[in-house]
Design a protein around this nucleic acid. Sequence first.
DNA 1: TCTATTGTTCTTTTATTGAGAACAAATATT
DNA 2: AATATTTGTTCTCAATAAAAGAACAATAGA
Lengths: 305, 305
Amino acid sequence: MNRFENMDTFIRVVETGSISGAADRAGVAKSAVSRRLKELEEHLGVQLFHRTTRRINLTDSGRAYYHQCVRILEDVLEAERATSQAHATLKGSLKVALPATFGHMHMGPAINEFILENPQIEFDLDFNDRAVDLMQEGFDLAIRIAKLPDSSLIARRLAPVELVLCASPAYLEKHGVPQSLDDLANHQCLVYSLTRDSEHWLFNSPQGGLEKTRIRPYLKASSGEFLRCAAVDGLGLAYFPSFIVFEEIERGTLVPLLSEYTCSDLNAYAIYPQTRHLSQRVRAFVDFLVKRFDGVPYWDRCLHT
Amino acid sequence: MNRFENMDTFIRVVETGSISGAADRAGVAKSAVSRRLKELEEHLGVQLFHRTTRRINLTDSGRAYYHQCVRILEDVLEAERATSQAHATLKGSLKVALPATFGHMHMGPAINEFILENPQIEFDLDFNDRAVDLMQEGFDLAIRIAKLPDSSLIARRLAPVELVLCASPAYLEKHGVPQSLDDLANHQCLVYSLTRDSEHWLFNSPQGGLEKTRIRPYLKASSGEFLRCAAVDGLGLAYFPSFIVFEEIERGTLVPLLSEYTCSDLNAYAIYPQTRHLSQRVRAFVDFLVKRFDGVPYWDRCLHT
DNA sequence: TCTATTGTTCTTTTATTGAGAACAAATATT
DNA sequence: AATATTTGTTCTCAATAAAAGAACAATAGA
């Protein structure tokens, strides 16, 4: 039995004052309307209408039930409207996971800008380099720096990420400037600890091949910003994303090395679960980010000119 | 789509925390549960759950919708409970149509007694001798004095009604005592005007036949009590129900005539519409009346002893 | 690594629902 | 008063929707 349909039909009958009328208005056969009423009455064990073969009149019970039905159906519609709209508008919260360094340095300003444009959206930002489970922890969105996106998730590429081998002038003066990848084995290396393989660095050689070079981790840390400081302080060689070190390179406190070798297949992605219904605020935010990071990233502009 | 069923399923899933669990608890296949959720989400255009292949987590929208669903379903149940109970309990009103004289003289005390036992029931009494349309005017019940009950209605026989031919001693002294039915033609007759045929009186003869006697209506009125007074005042012969005149006969202010002729196929009935669901208060009231009028009516006891 | 569990999807089976006609009763019309 | 029309109910049959159950993919736990 379809309670909802029956209640709706009952309301129609009450408001039309006849079964035929209600059937016409609803576009169904009057036999269907008659049966629904009968079903309702049997379910309730109550006579809803006084009837002759030609006329129906609400009973007291019917009148009381009618008012309740109207209220309930209004509530249902209101709940559906609210739920659908919460989704369709740019209201609500957005729980975003983002990597610490990229998040602080580049997502922060972007998010602030977005918030100014969309003040109804509340952000819940989790700056964290570990891989969070989007679904599990209820994230709407995550920002990832990765080679290829997770295929089980939707990914929008935000910006290319290049890794730059670099060191401080002081370090280079003390340990010499590496002339080839092979030289790296003799250097102190500053390594990001949450990488999959912290014993090797990968480079795209100018010839097009992929070079995997064994390195000696001198200092491992899970904070990009801490490692950048370490590099500036001359503690070792760094192979960092350009978005971390671009200012130091501009400023000359870090010097790029072996720049014929690159690592250009890394990207910053916005990823989100493959849901049937993407909330509009996720879409809006991702669209905003894609647009904002479009083209050559501002942190790479000095390097490429 | 069965909205309430889907909402109920959704609630079950939320409370169980899993689709399989909800399916088990509801005793349906999990595919059905899965489909219902999908249906709901598509209807709302909103993702209700974050899902992996193995786990589901409420979204913000889902949580908000959940609370509304719970409230709405409670309202539905409450409405149904209230409607069913109003019917099942002895609360509510009872609209009764009853003939004026019998109503005043015999139903009145009965109703008063019933009210004392069931103070929650409110009565709406229409004392009226015309034939009302039960459905049309929303009556729950009517009391009728009739030979046979209307077949389209449910009738419970309350009491036999006998007609008694009588007149006041003064009238008889003046006009003589009728010795046979044929004598009636020479008498002044007091006639109830709402009868079908006010030109004839019908009698069951002691031989078992039916005698139809032409009479001369001297005074016609639609009030039994008025006619009774007229009879007592010696205005003519009366052929009245014993329940109207029994006190006068006991007192001797009216004298029964030709008492070998009777009219015993009349009855007092409680009638009510043939509804699928008889309200309990109607049933209770009718049961009460049947019990109260059981046996030889008190107004006839003196006549039969 | 393997197993068991979970959610989804597909197909088949089952149940529900609507349409339409036939009917009975009551109102409107002639 | 007689007839025609309208109205609500009920029945059967067809269309539709829903459930069951198996198969599958993915994941969590052993």
